[in-house]
Design a binder for these strands. Sequence first.
DNA 1: GCGATCACG
DNA 2: ACGTACGTGATCGCT
Length: 880
Amino acid sequence: MDKEKIVLIDGHSIMSRAFYGVPELTNSEGLHTNAVYGFLNIMFKILEEEQADHVAVAFDRKEPTFRHKMFEPYKGTRKPMPEELHEQVDLMKEVLGAMEVPILTLAGYEADDILGTVAKESQAKGVEVVVVSGDRDLLQLADEHIKIRIPKTSRGGTEIKDYYPEDVKNEYHVTPTEFIDMKALMGDSSDNIPGVPSIGEKTAAAIIEAYGSIENAYAHIEEIKPPRAKKSLEENYSLAQLSKELATININCGIEFSYDDAKADNLYTPAAYQYMKRLEFKSLLSRFSDTPVESPSAEAHFQMVTDFGEAEAIFAACKAGAKIGLELVTLDHELTAMALCTGEEATYCFVPQGFMRAEYLVEKARDLCRSCERVSVLKLKPLLPFLKAESDSPLFDASVAGYLLNPLKDTYDYDDLARDYLGMTVPSRADLLGKQTIKKALESDEKKAFTCICYMGYIAFMSADRLTEELKKAEMYSLFTDIEMPLIYSLFHMEQVGIKAERERLKEYGDRLKVQIVALEQKIYEETGETFNINSPKQLGEVLFDHMKLPNGKKTKSGYSTAADVLDKLAPDYPVVQMILDYRQLTKLNSTYAEGLAVYIGPDERIHGTFNQTITATGRISSTEPNLQNIPVRMELGREIRKIFVPEDGCVFIDADYSQIELRVLAHMSGDERLIGAYRHADDIHAITASEVFHTPLDEVTPLQRRNAKAVNFGIVYGISSFGLSEGLSISRKEATEYINKYFETYPGVKEFLDRLVADAKETGYAVSMFGRRRPVPELKSTNFMQRSFGERVAMNSPIQGTAADIMKIAMIRVDRALKAKGLKSRIVLQVHDELLIETQKDEVEAVKALLVDEMKHAADLSVSLEVEANVGDSWFDAK
DNA sequence: GCGATCACG
DNA sequence: ACGTACGTGATCGCT
């Protein structure tokens, strides 16, 4: 190791960032934990990136500081803290204490002063320093060996901006020391000093760049331009000086600091592990992998069954009408183990051996599904090949129930259910087995594997009553029993059937693409004059905007943006840009589709993808391995891929699409008379919207008017905002606002409806679909404008998208059942949100088409009709 | 493992 | 002033 490194963290500032950046989070004790969670994530991330040897956290104290003596009304630079944040500060200190991270505070000084003092002292000792804060005032500390890191919370996570002196210079055109002068000149709005000059950032930077300090600028007051800035500085000079003094960090505050106490090599103490568990920071727990896990009391009643006779007795004791929990652990179409829970104190683990064969156990599981009143399992769909049950069986899927109760979670594993619905902290599968399969673990670590298997059955059993109760309380029980549970079977059928894909034809398609890719690649190298990886946005950005100096290399984050919308603007003037866009399209089609799909074509010439029911926030299903819901259609070349999706010999495809289902749902849910009237028999919804909004006869609507109306319709469904619409139409925000106002004038019922959705969601905390599906919207409580606005759009969009999803689910279930009930051989092969694709024997095409359209049209009774377009074809391409 | 990009509704 | 359209998943480059 070459040089010692220390990370110094501004405690309150990072906690605030985390508090406003991380969605609301509470553990089962009801403790707010989002700020602590966010803080720890930032801290761990930085410690890992920096590979630091030392770490310490500085906090402000309650007592007045030297700044109060300088200036009576000084209240510090922070706004009063919300209670939910305040209560997390002590918790944070406890957690840091448990990790043995020193907490630095000093009476009379703020955290900034402590950070400054320790940072400068460390640098003097030859230590490399990293200061982490959300407060830009800290930039004044940036130095040759002092890096300032400022996390920015953005949706999806945090990104961190780093500042050495040259970075400060690059962004603000001033040195770190001058930075305070610049801020003082601007009159930082977060300061509590009234009347400090209001000079903009650009002007302030220019003045300080020229004069170096406010004092020197004042000395040359007559030269200061523009006049407004001159006047402002004249009038407020003393206040600006004071502001500068207050913002200047004291780098000699006399804090005592011990490097030995601040070692960063062992944060993962048992005490800290206990905190992670109590606070339910699951993702952080994995960092503590060596820490032992204690066994909760439930495990006392877990039993291993190895004997056939014993098993017989247990199954016999499981009376008709019982409620049980069941889990089948399977691998490669074979049963590895089975768990059965018949009561709180009776959980059994069966591992096939001797006379107790796998087939026997599966047979018993099937019997139980016929005799019991309720069989609850963690995840039903993967068990159906074994259980061979249909939707009339008493099965209960705990993960689907958990999903309905909170669709925002990533996982619905047994430990999640135990925590959320039983208030139990139990070891997760990863805690017990790591990444091993259960089969492997049964050989290497039988006790833990047994415990894991038993928990699956136990929690499936124990959570079912609570989940049922919660579903009823939330008025989602019929959504669960009438839609989500039956849907599991329909999705299973669809996966089993799969879709036929022509391997050879796909390969030919890929080969055609590859020829074009190679040719285009060469042309791009010629045009740009260099050989580089066109697929690397980083390299591409450098070539286009640095080397070739193409204009407006704007939109930066980690370099230049080379996204399609940026390149589109350059394409007319620079042929190479168009080539790059074409290259992108070709490589996308090749890697994701031509080569990507080929992997999934099975020995039966079919692709059996997975349709996930517990992923989306709104109630849609999602598709993975492969994703069959994003097969190209918009571009002609991409659309060709659909030719490889074909029906079985002797069959054809019927493709049926809902026409504008979301807008029809909007018309119905809002009850807006005019919109309902417009959609009653309209076949071109966007044109009719244009006609009404722009007061133009329908047959005189121009293509532009229609395009605008279409964008507004999209905007309404997405949760309207003038900014978003202006982006979508590349018009000014003012124009966008006018369109929106016109729309709302035309359809006042829609405005009322959307306002009500937001108000209701603010009150209850969740958005609700027509069928009672809920989506929590914690962002609505955020004090952060951006987050709150997002919450408002979500509150408007979720009920609409969710209702459309509900309707499609109902249609799917009914179509699936009707096909079976009528003895037809047709099967659903795909669902793409508003589209169903059916593989049909040629002799039943007309009957099936009629059935399909009828079930889709009448899946819900709305005040506008649901229109369905259906086409027949010999491939997916042709049936569209 | 994450961001950028792009495919779909 | 702040800075985005809603919902997904796969692939690639990069660290």
